[in-house]
Write a protein that binds this DNA or RNA. Structure first.
Lengths: 225, 225
DNA sequence: GTCTATAGTGGGATAGAC
DNA sequence: GTCTATCCCACTATAGAC
């Protein structure tokens, strides 16, 4: 036996991984509702009891999917973030990157989305369990802001990444409901809304709009408190 | 004509109503997940099979709840709409009215909200089955706009009600996730966001913001097409 | 601590007799 | 239109093997 220091732990992690990967594969092949825990366990070569030993519920298998998606998104966004300087280009690049890496999962995302939408669910993007993925998402948008050539109100510079993440969540909501082939309408929505966001961010420093900017920032702080 | 011509139909409608009312009562008393179809059927004095004869699924029982809420909302909004002239006051009145009539259902709304969020669900506010409720909602906001003293760009005047309905859906989303007592944070969100909306609507006609207004309206039309 | 096997519960949904 | 009987599956419980 290799590894006597943490007995079984390595093996356990491998079993956990096998179950998670099998589940994800079956979800993609058959859809979420059509994939039973029995089938996942059988296909992974473990007992159903064992599957439940590692994952508290069928829903918990999706947490893996989130983390995977988040990692892939960061990787797919890297080229844009490394080269583009314009805020609008960086933002559009990151959003389109998400669209591309998420595309293969569109049909099955729809079927488990309901679970994520439930307030008490650990899969909700607003839940405590999701805070690592959420923080990673906000961090990505922080990179979008910080690397851009745009000059911003300092306070807005701090809070804008969170606002952009919420904007992204709105796009995801639209995407989930988007029946068009390859979700082209969502792509269109990005292409049409990014320039608006860009323009509004630029205008936020003007005398006319500064009061609104203040109100928005106050609101963000109120909601965080 | 109210008729003896369709025999049994009246009886059927009564059975349907009894089941729906029983279900709503039990949902409020015990919560959605904790109320089984067996319990609903038993309490209503019918068999479970019969309950399924009238309602294709447990979720379908909620459609009744939607309609009820929509009707109550219109009634609760009437006083404000009959008296207030300022756009901000009318909007805030209608939104707070919703908050009040929805309050008793907050805890159970959370548990079935997931169903409504599912794209393929007939309960989704964007579904074809929900279009009557959606249209009624938009009509309510049309009254908010049309009865107000504010002067608006004609095109915006046409599309603003739909935008306000979407804004309302956003507030509902927040409300569902709001754990504060009596959902006070949602009330705070309304109080802080309505002045912003009001200000932005006023500013939409200024030279500086007109391009953004155009873009927003183009976007709305794109999404409708 | 990791895993199997098995037996069982409860609830959404359905089939088919009447 | 209404019933009874049954299916299916998520999930639990448990007892024990390595």
């Amino acid at each position: 036996m290799p590894d006597a220091t943490i007995p079984g732990s390595a093996k356990g992690e491998r079993t956990r991984a096998v179950i998670a990967e099998t589940a994800l594969r079956l979800f993609r092949e058959r859809g979420y509702d059509e994939t039973t825990m029995r089938a996942i366990a059988a296909e992974a070569g473990v007992s159903t009891g064992n599957a439940y030993y590692y994952f508290a519920s069928k829903d918990h298998l999706i947490q893996r999917f989130y983390d995977q998606l988040q990692t892939d998104h960061a990787v797919a966004s890297a080229p844009t973030l490394a080269t583009a300087e314009s805020f609008a280009v960086r933002l559009a690049g990151v959003l389109h990157a998400w669209l591309e890496i998420a595309r293969p999962y569109h049909s099955f995302a729809g079927s488990f989305f309901k679970t994520a939408a439930e307030p008490t669910s650990p899969l909700s993007p607003f839940s405590a369990e999701s805070s690592p993925a959420r923080d990673a998402g906000i961090a990505l948008f922080r990179t979008v802001v910080q690397g851009s050539s745009a000059t911003l109100d300092p306070q807005l510079r701090d809070d804008l990444p969170e606002l952009l993440w919420i904007y992204h969540m709105g796009l995801v909501l639209f995407w989930v409901h988007d029946p068009s082939p390859d979700q082209r309408r969502t792509a269109g929505l990005i292409d049409r809304s990014v320039p608006m966001v860009d323009r509004i961010v630029r205008l936020s420093r003007t005398r006319l709009l500064r009061p609104v900017t203040r109100e928005v920032l106050d609101l963000v702080r109120y909601l965080r408190s």
